[in-house]
Design a protein around this nucleic acid. Structure first.
Ligand code: SF4
Ligand code: SF4
Lengths: 132, 132
DNA sequence: TTATATCCGATAATTTTAGTCGGATATATT
DNA sequence: AATATATCCGACTAAAATTATCGGATATAA
């Protein structure tokens, strides 16, 4: 319970990998996948997704790959998680109302309070706090 | 991502329900399931589990049911989550080493730091902070 | 022209979470 | 004693979410 997804982990591993290299150097999917033992295809998807979100930049063709595009210290972890994985919260009802209990739920308000604490904690950290 | 499970929610809903009644009054599975629109069988399992963990107490027979046994303000949310749902953490590797990336992982340490923050946040709250 | 890379939709497999079933035991009420 | 109502509990099934794979397209450096 309360776990990050592999996709998020793969994204962070990749960003930290790229950040450890000189600014304009390019990392290919295969290079990262091999280095960290990540399935190539799913890593490819993750990187494509991050490129679409303008976190990284894709360079096509041979000798191509990706490099960091955004300022990682300007992206907080809530933004990052939502860009990579989608909405975020302790309970469904904070972003999607399909809950059979919602009408009579007696814990929604207290859970929401805790959810806010958690969100604030993640918002107070940037991606760079992980990749550095 | 980062969601509580239904089981945890059902457990909390039940505890709050029981806490809203006079100390020795008993709540049956059916009563709670009907009141909050929760599937009876799965709620039964959840309540049995909590009884085994000594959070609540089972009374058998007709007019039976459950009542609160533990001091809810003495159980912090990490204990509670782990009793109801099992181990807890942002990444598998903090309680189970079956990760293909673990040998070369470059984010384990920073994630663990954040994990500790999260755990501490939940540990600083008691079940009663939700059920009150 | 060729080889290497990203791109991208569709699909499959796996794991986790959620819910169901069947039959047992305990006990208050009649 | 019989009955009805409740918990107990293991095994099972279903659904959903996550994780991984496939097939074929496009871009471009050498
Ligand atoms: S309404 Fe209550 S039970 Fe439903 S998702 Fe929200 S907090 Fe959970
Ligand atoms: S080793 Fe790294 S990738 Fe594997 S679970 Fe831990 S943090 Fe995640």
């Amino acid at each position: 319970m309360l776990k990050l997804t592999r996709k998020v982990e793969y994204a962070l591993i990749s960003l930290r990998h790229m950040q450890g290299k000189s600014t304009d150097s390019i990392s290919s999917t295969k290079e990262i996948a091999n280095h960290y033992n990540i399935p190539v295809e799913i890593l490819a998807k993750t990187l494509q997704h991050m490129a679409k979100e303008n976190i990284i930049e894709a360079i096509n063709g041979p000798r191509g790959g990706y490099r960091i595009k955004a300022k990682l210290n300007k992206i907080n972890l809530v933004e990052f998680f939502e860009k990579v994985e989608g909405p975020l919260g302790l309970s469904d009802c904070f972003y999607d109302a399909n809950c059979m209990q919602i009408e009579f739920c007696n814990i929604r308000t207290p859970i929401q309070r805790i959810n806010n604490n958690m969100i604030n904690m993640f918002r107070s950290m940037s991606v760079q706090d992980i990749t550095n």
